[in-house]
Design a protein around this nucleic acid. Structure first.
Length: 745
DNA sequence: CCAGGACACGTTTTT
DNA sequence: CGTGTCCTGG
């Protein structure tokens, strides 16, 4: 059998990883080093050379997008080259999915032993927050003192750490005591209502294996080969689950990059990748350091920055490509100047024959996008913002899905509450509260409670009528869509419930957009094919659930990225976090200033600072051809002017990689402009400070080394006072007044 | 029900 | 400054 296609076109390190005889393997894959390719070829190698049945392989990712890509590329590779068609068919029996998707599947298969209802509901973070709010109300907690959001994140981080409430020691700490109280009550509601949040999926999947030796043994035999992508992003419970599942016999291939670990703040443990070789015995480590994405100078800059981190597993990117253009650094006066500069550079780049969609503008925080958008809008440049609200999280979509969920299961209280008065049908909060109360008394669902309150005439005639209309509507839809296809079903539901009209009539462009999204949902239903799911169905599952149920489950676990509106040729705007995994010919990193990047909140904790540095490394390595870094000397944040210095990360870039962009015209900042922006500073006026010093804004001065210039900013007081001077020949500089020895002109 | 005002808040985000 | 949330009065 000719398997050369599996190793052709790979470099030495890649070949070593693909053909490794070792059981456990850690693949440290630098940015742009062909990671997915290696992973896919490794799986194909196992199947074709090691004769591992696809049935025995599990491949785990973090996002559905990654899972889909993995399966797609694997099928492409195998379809073209596998002669044994039996194996091709079998490749579908491999499990490829997200941690959550696979956990969900385990819970679905073993619902009985887990004491879950067969049709347990998945709570997304929105549902979860509503529930936490209700718990706080029930416990009569002051919402201002104990914000439900905080409680929610407490619960989630406890679950990420594998902590059940009964094992948490609150001690005498009133914060911990209250949080624990909420957690405990929340969990009780979830248990009795058959509700499972995202963290619970992982926690239950872990407990399932831990507490049931026979089930564990079954899966250990079934999956002797496990591959995990983005291993540096695993959290405590995911790592624990993997260790249990692998046991002493399973072979784990972990692919990741400790230098790209940027999700510590949501529970990811970089330690997991660092301790892999200790916990998974006799593993071999392969480093993929050859980069196929960026020019030499971009990589040199990236390496220069990341080498300032301690405790790295060690890796240095290299390329056969030439140096390329140096990085550019632009010191803007303020965020508007920065945006203007970026837009002009974009226009220039496009004039040189490049497309808009080869460009990305990356920033640390979402708030930065507004000014950039305005500048793009002014010049009529199409742009797309990544990572806004996700499709299945949108209000109108959640409403539509709630109707569908009610059709499947009348007793779905979360869905019931959501749509009983959406669109408005005269059922107010008081009526709903009564229904809720009665349900609690009788220990029944909201649906049953509502039905009985109508039947037994407990409600006022008016409320009763309205509630009955709602109950009838749902029943009617149930009957009418019995024979319908999924998309017909969705279409009928959104139209006949009045949801479509309701959203369409919302004022402004919002109505239009929401109506379009609802139509898009129908399209998504039409396109839905359970076989496309990254997690496949197989014989172990007793019987296939109805299509609608499968669709709803997949909607709960998938952001629905495909449904986002995409422009053809647009500049891409996104945070540095959402840029991970992507690449662009031309990258702008904006707002690279102290206090913004690294963010103020991370600056004094060394570990968090290192994570910021990794984020910077991620940003730099997105660029293929040209990287431009910019920062603003003045930036308006939260309504006040901030004077930030260039980020320490810029100083970590070797100086021969980067060239500073000079202003095209000197005295770019007309003094009137500056004065204007200083008209309304609050009491501690900067102008006053300036006057204290004997200098004034706009003052022409001369400096022994830098020549002539004009004062544009003041900062600090007395001995620490610094002034910013825009020099005719040297550009703008901050100087400590005490030492600068300026001469007034 | 909804418009409008007071008020709080202000990294990063997937499932 | 800007946005989102909550509350109130019509």
């Amino acid at each position: 059998m000719d398997v050369s296609y599996l190793l052709d076109d790979l470099n030495d390190a890649q070949r070593e990883a693909v053909s490794a005889p070792a059981c456990n393997q850690l693949i440290l894959a630098g940015a742009g080093s062909g990671k997915t390719r290696v992973l896919v070829h490794r799986i194909a190698w196992l199947i074709q050379v090691e004769h591992v049945s696809p049935h025995s392989i599990m491949s785990v990712t973090f996002t559905n997008k990654a899972a889909r890509e993995m399966r797609g590329r694997l099928e492409d590779l195998l379809d073209g080259n596998l002669l044994d068609s039996n194996l091709v068919g079998n490749s579908r029996s491999m499990w490829v999915g997200t941690f959550h998707g696979i956990a969900h599947r385990l819970l679905k298969a073993h619902w009985k032993i887990l004491n879950l209802p067969q049709n347990f509901q998945i709570l997304d973070s929105d549902d979860q927050l509503r529930l936490v709010k209700r718990v706080c109300q029930t416990l009569k907690l002051d919402e201002t003192k104990w914000p439900p959001r905080q409680a929610q994140s407490y619960i989630n981080s406890q679950k990420d750490e594998g902590q059940r409430p009964q094992y948490i020691q609150a001690g005498g700490d009133p914060y911990a005591v209250t949080m624990l109280q909420i957690y405990t009550a929340y969990e009780e509601i979830c248990r009795s209502g058959g509700l499972v949040d995202f963290g619970e999926l992982l926690l239950r999947a872990h407990e399932l294996l831990l507490n049931n030796p026979d089930i564990l043994q079954h899966y250990q035999r079934r999956f002797p080969f496990i591959l995990v992508d983005e291993f540096q992003d695993t959290n405590t419970i995911q790592y624990a689950w993997l260790r249990v599942l692998a046991g002493n016999t399973g072979c784990v291939t972990a692919v990741g990059d400790d230098d790209q670990s940027i999700y510590g703040w949501r529970g990811a443990k970089i330690e997991n990748i660092q301790r892999f070789t200790d916990d998974f015995k006799q593993s071999q480590t392969v480093r993929l350091e050859q980069n196929y994405r960026s020019t030499g100078l971009i990589l040199k800059a990236a390496n220069g920055v990341i080498q300032n981190n301690f405790g790295r597993l060690g890796k240095e990117l290299r390329t056969d490509a030439g140096d390329g253009e140096p990085l550019s650094l632009y010191a803007a006066f303020n965020e508007h100047d920065e945006a203007r500069f970026i837009v002009e550079s974009i226009q220039q780049w496009v004039k040189e024959g490049n497309r808009y969609d080869s460009i990305a503008i990356l920033y640390r925080s979402n708030a930065q996008s507004r000014v950039l958008e305005e500048a793009l809008l002014r010049e009529n440049i199409a742009y797309r913002i990544y990572g806004g609200q996700r499709f299945y999280d949108r209000l109108e979509i959640k409403n539509a899905l709630s109707y569908l969920r009610l059709l499947v299961n009348n007793n779905d209280d979360t869905a019931f509450e959501r749509v009983i008065n959406t669109p408005t049908r005269g059922i107010g909060g008081k009526t709903v509260e009564q229904i809720r109360l009665f349900a609690r008394q009788e220990g029944c669902s909201l649906w049953d409670s509502a039905q009985r309150m109508v039947d037994e005439k407990i409600l006022t005639p008016r409320a009763s009528g309205a509630v009955n209309v709602f109950l009838q509507l749902i029943r009617q839809l149930q009957v009418q869509t019995l024979e319908s296809s999924l998309d017909e079903q969705a279409d009928k539901v959104i139209k006949q419930s009045g949801l479509y009209e309701f959203h369409k009539n919302e004022k402004g462009e919002k109505g239009q957009a929401r109506a379009e999204n609802l139509e898009e949902l129908v399209n998504a239903c039409r396109a839905f094919n359970p076989n496309d799911l990254a997690t496949q169905t197989d014989q172990e599952q007793q019987e296939d659930a109805p299509l609608l149920v499968q669709f709803l489950d997949s909607a709960s676990l998938d952001a629905g990225e495909g449904q986002a509106d995409e422009f053809d040729d647009a500049v891409q705007l996104m945070t540095l976090h959402s840029a991970k995994g992507l690449e662009f010919s031309r990258v702008f990193m904006a707002g690279v200033e102290e206090n913004l990047f690294p963010h103020r909140m991370s600056a004094d904790d060394p570990e968090r600072l290192e994570e910021e540095r990794r984020l910077c490394y991620v940003g730099i390595t997105r660029a293929m051809v040209k990287l431009t870094i910019s920062y603003a000397e003045t930036r308006r944040m939260h309504g006040t002017e901030n004077f930030n210095r260039v980020s320490r990360f810029v100083k970590e870039i070797p100086s021969d990689c980067i060239s500073e962009v000079r202003l095209k015209t000197q005295i770019q900042r007309p003094l009137g402009y500056n004065k204007q922006s200083y008209k309304k500073p609050s009491n501690a006026s900067l102008q006053e400070k300036g006057e204290d010093s004997g200098y004034y804004l706009g003052q022409k001065v001369t400096h022994a080394m830098f020549g002539d210039g004009a004062i544009t900013h003041f900062e600090g007081q007395e001995n620490n006072m610094r002034v910013q001077v825009n020099f005719v020949n040297e550009g703008s500089k901050w100087l400590v007044l005490q030492y600068a020895n300026l001469q007034a002109l």
